[in-house]
Design a protein around this nucleic acid. Structure first.
Lengths: 189, 189
DNA sequence: GCTGGCATGTAACAAGTTACATGATTTT
DNA sequence: AAAATCATGTAACTTGTTACATGCCAGC
């Protein structure tokens, strides 16, 4: 009977990207329903993070269970009842930790952290952008090495097309990172 | 006993991206083991599509079950036994259909189709790139509209940073698409 | 003696998709 | 009369990750 073999109490573990995204929206926009969150997400962060309905409705109860969000039922007469979700103190604490965590190579998480940059101190954001630069530099070096070995004939021709796109994009990202570092420094002193 | 309630015979359905990627590698590099496929993927297509071991080993039997791949067991003396997978006629047929299918907005699938461009006729590839251009143009228009409403103050400052990146990237993608169309036309007459 | 390569998998998740299900109200 | 909005979910998948499990052989 290998029953109680570690149900894994990961409540103290780091947040997943999805959890962090939802908590950040709750922190910024206040108490909301799943429906509100979906609309808000589509209207702003949607380009970076667009959860499916079913996914969002699955995450919200998990947040409550983990103690990072609380639920409040609003009974309505002419509309279906609402479940309003708000972030808890524990949620804010866990979110801050997540926002300050530097994850090398995690581009999507970086974009998300920058999107909700208003929740972090400027120096934290500068460190994230520096890490992004390093990650992109590494990628760029790899792409250039592969491109040098590319013959441009047969299947290699198509790999060459995509490598060009990857290299150009990486160079663009580096320029963007420099500009953004400068703008952030100017804007925050 | 709700037993045989639609086991869903999706054998005639379109391939998933993962299935198409594996079949394309089998079509290009010939009969291989899961181990070989993982190495090959990491060494080339890995920038676009990098399956986890567990995922690949899950997909391969599915392909056999669907009739798009066949398995051949190689008994080895000094090494663990191998399962070699090869693409079937039906697999080639389904792969061709997938390669010719235009999926608006599916950027990852587009990159994959271009990566294995050697398996398609040039006119099919040109059509895919045209669709890519249209998709990026749509995105660009959206980003520009959002950017015009951006105040650059408070949370909007960070959205502005990311919008700049998105816009610059979209413009770059358009230039790349034009160049690639020209190069392809030149290379294939 | 240890590391790395060869070779195949399972388990347990998290992320994300489409389709299904319900039902009232408000706008076109 | 039809479509969109409000509001919450379930079901069934595919995708993708990390960790676990096994075991032999070659080279340092």
């Amino acid at each position: 009977m290998a029953l109680s073999s570690k149900p894994v109490p990961q409540s103290t573990h780091s947040l997943t990207t999805t959890e962090a995204a939802v908590l950040a929206l709750l922190a910024i926009n206040g108490e909301q329903s799943g429906y509100d969150l979906l609309k808000a997400a589509n209207a702003s962060i949607g380009y970076l993070w667009a959860p499916a309905k079913s996914q969002l409705y699955a995450v919200l109860p998990r947040l409550v269970k983990e103690g990072t969000a609380r639920r409040r039922r609003i009974v309505q007469e002419r509309r279906p009842d609402k479940q309003l979700y708000g972030i808890t103190k524990e949620g804010r604490r866990r979110l801050q930790t997540w926002l300050e965590t530097i994850e090398p190579g995690a581009f999507d998480a970086f974009y998300l952290r920058l999107f909700v940059g208003g929740l972090s101190r400027p120096d934290v954001l500068l460190a994230h952008i520096e890490q992004f630069k390093e990650d992109v530099e590494g990628q760029l070096a790899e792409y250039r090495a592969v491109e040098q070995r590319n013959t441009r004939r047969g299947h290699d021709l198509f790999h060459h097309f995509l490598l060009r796109l990857g290299i150009d994009r990486a160079e663009l990202s580096l320029r963007w990172a420099h500009e953004t570092l400068a703008e952030l420094r100017k804007a925050t002193g």
